[in-house]
Design a protein around this nucleic acid. Structure first.
Length: 400
RNA sequence: GGUGAGAUAGUCAAGUGGCCAACGACGGCGGACUGUAAAUCCGCUCCCUUCGGGUUCAGAGGUUCGACUCCUCUUCUCACCA
């Protein structure tokens, strides 16, 4: 049992510091029923989660399965400073109201993965405000500037003469102090958080609370392209609140190779189950598409529902495999009658300009009621039509 | 504060008086193909109802028959010096 737990906990991790300690905690849980705490900090600046963020949450869910109590920390105090990690310039601060708002939508999304019974949501302003000037001062005596400057991002900024605010030095200290206050047994975070995570160990030692947290780091999830990290700004992400149909299509579009990475980091299936699947796909008894479909279904079910997932699958089948029309599409009332086809496409937002529309027609991408349009000058008479550009863009148009 | 370099379409990046709506790469879109919105191959990629017209190469002026390309000023970025 402990072995299984350990395997699942180690699954997909980038690095574990003090793995022995984790082993001891598990042993203690299975032999004495003693639970332990796992801390994970979240910055309330970005409440719009995508699958990349859920890698950490999945890991937390696994810990819950094996006896952990999660300390889900919302860094409302530290958000006022802004985490300097990976940043090349000082960040602007957030208002208290923004933070409160963000924290709220955070919780909604997070409990789709975590078990609320085994999760304690905490705000670090609770104890950091209580620290006071004296407490803060003594916190700063535990570390020195030289070591702080060893941090890669600080180092670069210092050398290039980019401003580093003193408050940014405080940030890792405060994050570490959270671990002191919460007496965390384990803290998990992304690989980019290494410095901050280790600070927790350092401070727990300095404050002599009798333990030093183990640290577990998860890799950054690759985006749909399989190369760059998943991020909103790169547009290669799957948001947790996206429509089921969108999610389904996006997951199916990843490469077969990337699929296994997603299985490892995102699926709730056990390693053994995945291993079996992997073998079956490789020996040809299971089609890779089936494996990908199952992954898509699992993920959609997690954020929506089983029915929604099944519907998305049916819909995808209909539109892409059978070349049929989707069940739902946007409807538009057109301005003229009769209307030039290129203009109609622009009005239905299927193409950004009439020039683009004409190119699409020339390339044979435009269909009305499933019929390909060859003639650029085509005029639409009054009636209701289904317009289509390419395989994926549909609209219902009404000509008066 | 001084000197030098630079600012080109979504991004990167060619072009240094007409052959430029502007090479190329990436991205995006479309077509073929496919288990897929993957991979591969092909095409398109400023706007305008089109063998034509309009507006572009940081901004404003100027030189010229003609400028993204030359000159002046302005703004911003970068490098070196102080």
């Amino acid at each position: 049992m402990i072995q299984e737990a350990l395997r699942e906990i180690q699954r997909g991790t980038a690095e574990i510091i003090d793995g022995e300690r984790i082993e001891k905690l598990l042993k203690n849980y299975y032999e004495n029923g003693q639970t332990y705490t796992v801390k994970a900090g979240f910055d309330p600046t970005a409440p719009d989660l995508h699958l990349g963020h859920t890698v950490l949450l999945q890991k937390l869910a696994i810990f819950q399965k094996y006896g952990a109590k999660i300390q889900f920390l919302i860094g409302d105090f530290t958000a006022q400073i802004g985490d300097p990690t990976g940043k090349s310039a000082t960040r602007k601060t957030l208002s208290a109201l923004d933070i409160e708002e963000n924290a709220k939508s955070y919780k909604e999304q997070v409990f789709k993965i975590l078990d609320p019974e085994k999760t304690e949501v905490v705000f670090n302003s609770d104890w950091i405000n209580a620290l006071g000037a004296a407490g803060m001062l003594s916190l700063t005596t535990t570390f020195n500037v030289a070591r702080m400057l060893e941090r890669d991002d600080f180092d670069k900024r210092y050398k290039s003469g980019t401003s580093i605010s003193i408050s940014e030095f405080i940030y890792p200290l405060l994050q570490g102090y959270d671990s002191v206050h919460l007496k965390s047994d384990i803290e998990i975070g992304g690989t980019d958080q290494k410095f901050n995570l280790l600070m927790g160990r350092h401070l727990q030692r300095a404050y002599e609370i009798g333990k030093e947290q183990a640290v577990l780091m998860m890799p950054i999830l690759e985006g749909l392209d399989g190369v760059q990290k998943m991020s909103k700004s790169l547009g290669n992400y799957i948001g947790v609140s996206e429509e089921p149909n969108e999610m389904y299509g996006k997951i199916l579009s990843i490469s077969d190779e990337l699929m296994w990475r997603y299985y490892e980091l995102l699926s709730s299936q056990t390693l053994d189950e995945i291993e079996v699947l992997y073998v079956n796909v490789n020996n040809g008894s299971v089609h890779p598409k089936t494996a990908k479909e199952d992954l898509a279904l699992e993920i959609i079910e997690r954020f929506h529902s089983k029915e929604a997932a099944e519907e998305a699958k049916t819909e995808f089948q209909r539109v892409h495999a059978n070349n049929e029309i989707p069940t739902d599409m946007e409807e538009f009332e057109l301005s003229e009658s009769p209307i030039w086809i290129a203009k109609a496409l622009v009005e239905c937002k299927l193409t950004p300009s009439t020039s683009q529309a004409r190119r699409d027609i020339k390339q044979g991408a435009v269909k009305i009621d499933q019929e390909k349009i060859e003639e650029e000058q085509f005029q639409m008479q009054s009636g209701e039509y289904i317009l289509q550009v390419g395989k994926r863009k549909f609209a219902k148009a009404r000509v008066k």
